[in-house]
Design a protein around this nucleic acid. Structure first.
Lengths: 112, 112
DNA sequence: GTCAACCATTGACGTACATCGATATAGTGG
DNA sequence: CCACTATATCGATGTACGTCAATGGTTGAC
């Protein structure tokens, strides 16, 4: 599990602008971008980061997003699979945090 | 006023980390990220930027990408619609360039 | 004018995805 | 043990997307 998080946070690719990236690098970077390339998931990431303590449970996100709870859980799982957020169960609630290192890895690859 | 519109076209959104972005902002940013969130299109952007003069025609890209010419044209059109590249017809060839400002706008929104 | 090269469009096909309602699982408090 | 809440999973459905073969349009050379 810790290795998965480390992988997600690690910079995947050489900066696009410097040299043509490989097929494998493009595959990895595209998967991460796909996780972010959805309005609901962008708002989730933004809502979580703007929440007190930079974390939020699913119940805090369903209302502001205006989507059903299963759909919100679905999107949180997509983000989690891509390493963009991490969820931690505390009692009845699952609190999610944004993996800033993963965001920075994307920024690093796109930076010109 | 024109300045505001130009700015809006380049930097679409407030940084995700600072405040929860609106539905509209998420929509715009997601569209741009979707344009990049594909291995073929990431490689296209990278190949174009790494080409001499930072530009390339379709014929230069079909081979390295390993996809059919219609598929490459399709991806270039997606990137063009999203404002990530611009194509200019010169004789028989269409030369594409990467809009670095558009890339930077994405980086600015994701930057933490 | 004819021909070849380059690029774009169309149609078709299979796959992936966003969304929801219904349902299942897990934890809390009585 | 039971009711209640929070979260996750499942099944279904409509839509969007990536890809190619075939075709059409435009340009430059002969």
């Amino acid at each position: 599990m810790a290795t998965m998080l480390a992988d997600a946070a690690r910079a995947c690719c050489a900066p696009l602008a410097e040299v043509a990236i490989s097929e494998d690098e493009a595959e990895v970077l595209a998967d991460r971008l796909k996780a972010l390339a959805d309005p609901a998931r962008l708002r989730l990431v933004s809502l979580i980061m703007a929440s007190p303590g930079h974390e939020a449970c699913t119940c805090d996100l369903v209302g502001p997003l205006g989507l059903s709870q299963p759909t919100v859980t679905h999107h949180l799982r997509k983000l989690s699979d891509a390493g963009m957020v991490t969820g931690e169960r505390r009692g009845r609630w699952t609190y999610y945090r944004v993996e800033r290192a993963a965001l920075e890895a994307i920024v690093g690859a796109l930076r010109t």
